[in-house]
Every structure is written in structure tokens, then in C-alpha cells.
């Protein structure tokens, strides 16, 4: 099915949960925040939350930055 991850279209298998997506992307589950269709998920819900066709997903983490927009 088709979803959008961090603004980019992406094809994923059916029946995939958030943890599965993060594993496919080789991301450390403990250090990211996930927002689906503008709803921020609790990390404890990553297993239970199944992805749906057309979901718009944002995966956020921490980067270097101080007192200014770091572009």
C-alpha cells in the first residue's frame, strides 16, 4: 500500500505496524517521535498501531541545534 513518510511517497507491505516501518527504515525506536496524520503517537503504541493506505507519517528525532534554526 502507499503511504507518505517524511514528505516522500513510499510503498509498504500490507499489515504493517509502526514498529515494523521503523525496523524497515533501520531506525532506533527509542529515539524517534512518530506522527500519523497530525496525531502524535505514544511510543508504547508503536506495536498496536497498524498503518493505513494514504497515511501521512512524520518520523522526527533530535539533531544538532542551539538557539537558531539549523538549516
Amino acid at each position: 500500500m502507499h503511504i507518505q513518510v517524511n514528505g516522500e511517497p513510499r510503498q509498504v507491505r500490507e499489515e504493517i505496524n509502526v514498529t515494523g516501518l521503523l525496523q524497515d527504515l533501520q531506525l532506533n525506536v527509542e529515539r524517534v517521535a512518530v506522527e500519523i496524520n497530525l496525531e502524535i503517537l505514544d511510543q508504547r503504541d508503536f506495536d498496536a498501531r497498524m498503518l493505513q493506505e494514504g497515511d501521512r507519517i512524520e518520523i522526527m528525532s533530535f539533531i544538532g541545534g542551539g538557539t537558531s534554526p539549523y538549516l
Binding site: E8, Q26, N28, S61, F62, G64, P69
Partner: peptide, 19 residues
């Protein structure tokens, strides 16, 4: 230490995490 919140780089799988 203060850090910014940004989209994870999902295209470069070797990209390192500040943490």
C-alpha cells in the same frame, strides 16, 4: 545540551544520530 527536533533522514541509512 539543547537539541533541535527535525525529520529523520530516511534515505541515508548510515546517517548517525546525535544521541
Amino acid at each position: 545540551v539543547t537539541v533541535a527536533v527535525r525529520r529523520v533522514n530516511i534515505t541515508d541509512r548510515n546517517s548517525e544520530n546525535l544521541l
